[in-house]
Design a protein around this nucleic acid. Sequence first.
RNA 1: CGGGAUGUAGCGCAGCCUGGUAGCGCGCUUGACUGGGGGUCAAGAGGUCGCAGGUUCAAAUCCUGUCAUCCCGACCA
Length: 579
Amino acid sequence: MRWSQTLIPTMKETPADAEIPSHQLMLRAGLIRQLMAGAYTYLPLGTRAIRKASEIVRQEMDRTGAVELSMPALQPIELFERTGRRDAFGNVLINFPIRRRDHNVHLALGPTHEEVVTDLMSRLISSYRQLPMTVYQIQTKFRNEERPRFGVLRTSEFLMKDAYSFATTVEQLNESYQKMYDAYCRIYSRCGLEFIPVEAESGPIGGDASHEFMIPADNGEDRIVRCDSCGYAANLERADTGRNHQAPASTENQPPPETVDTPGLGSIEAVANFLKIQPSEMIKTLIYLADDKPVAVLLRGDHEANDGKIRRALSAQTLEMADNATIERSTNAPVGFAGPVELKIPILVDHDVSLMSTAVVGANAEDKHTTGVVPGRDFTFDTTFDLRNAEAGDPCPKCESKLEFVHGIEVGHVFKLGTKYSEALEAEFLDEKEQRHPLIMGCYGIGVNRIIAGLAETCHDENGLIWPVSVAPYEVELIPLNVSDPEVMKHAESIYSELQQAGIDVLMDDRDARPGFKFKDADLIGIPLRIIVGGKGLKEGIAEIKWRRGGDAEKIPLAEAANDAINKIQAEQNRLSNQ
RNA sequence: CGGGAUGUAGCGCAGCCUGGUAGCGCGCUUGACUGGGGGUCAAGAGGUCGCAGGUUCAAAUCCUGUCAUCCCGACCA
């Protein structure tokens, strides 16, 4: 492609609305333009990058034996009502009535395709002999993001690869899941991305039923914890803290508790300020409803509750914060003054609470707290649990080391669904004994736009983007420095057509502009390999070949330049696909 | 949905407080020069100042409303 014949609107200045590097660079390098909040046009360079990433995804999906199909973005709302997800999605689900002849049809734009694919399979699968089966598609999804942000990272319309596996047994599901997991690792490696697979909140199936794939990036929306020494990594919601049950600290020689007035001070922070103590010297008493029964959860004052862990510790189906009436009934005090001493409902204690020798707690009376409370003496418990979010410095659950926090961009998610959708939509198969069973499903998503944005976010320098060859819009940028010099153009044209014939994606900057201008643009759009043909080199009979990522330019005889570039590109492509 | 900010030429911004001719840089057009890291000179084109209403002889500027965009938070199968 010749630069003069395509559309690459580069910008010298950074648009004011773009805050993070990927957004700024994608705009400045002419990959995208915004139409409205949460919706972007992909210009030619952006489209080419998306296409390259999609093709890698497609190849790796095919390699697992998954088969590609294409389902409608338009979906009847009834499907979402049958699975209960119309409510679950709420406002996120874009849906609207349309007029058809004399009646209304209520449609949704697909936020994902569990319903459609399950409905499809319920009609097409009847025997265990057809299974296992995995299908996938690469298609635009729609979700009404309450707050689109970070450029292309969080939008209401985005390109997603979604795959769905169907199995007769949990073993079959596990096998499909593992294949997808491995394929995801290959995909991100081939895209030149650094990535971390993390254990994610897995819902009803539990165990290893869900992993997210994260690109470590300071601007990532997700917080993950990881251990540098053993490689353990998990979503913040999911991360174990590696702490164990501790017997209560010594109860000897502590003075008895005292009740103090704390008028109107119902928060940890306010009480700590008032008593001139640290929040870590207090115990937070949270009242929950677990399967509709009240229970008190005790955490150290500076810690954050983790609802998933609490729910699992109680083996409860549902868990929610108690309403004010329940709190008042359970504690005989208004919200903000709950404490564990002589509390009439069951209490659940976090590991760290038992390590406190003495603590300040709510007194279960309005405007009063109790100081000098000793866990194990003033209230008792048999065991303790991991009930809070992990924090930096917590012990690693898998080794001796400590956990650290990193931010990440979620670029993929694999999930063992089980039979939630197949039961709701009656997608069943007949086993060898003619018994009916619901299909056992898995679902697997990759945000294709996020691969591109993630690369832009993590692979750049102060001059612009630095694409890996595998997803670069073009592999080679050929720069004739003076297009009005016939000698320069003769050699440039010949290298250009040689590269094209070899199947290399080459962009020739044929604009009549000064060299410095073209160099700046080349740095900005970040094409990995650059060939320069200019007057200086011509005198020596050479072209200069240089990687965008750095290093010195090589001087290659003009006649060999194209071949040299072809070899370099192929070697780099091989390196990325074999690593 | 709560909090904050910003809307003036394609992009970045000034002007607004103190009402009176709409400005700068980049980009764009034409020409000449120039030609290895965002060139120089000359001549141009381009804006109902987000929108609506109000105050005023007069509104980019003051007031009210509204819309849009961005940021923080809540939310995110």
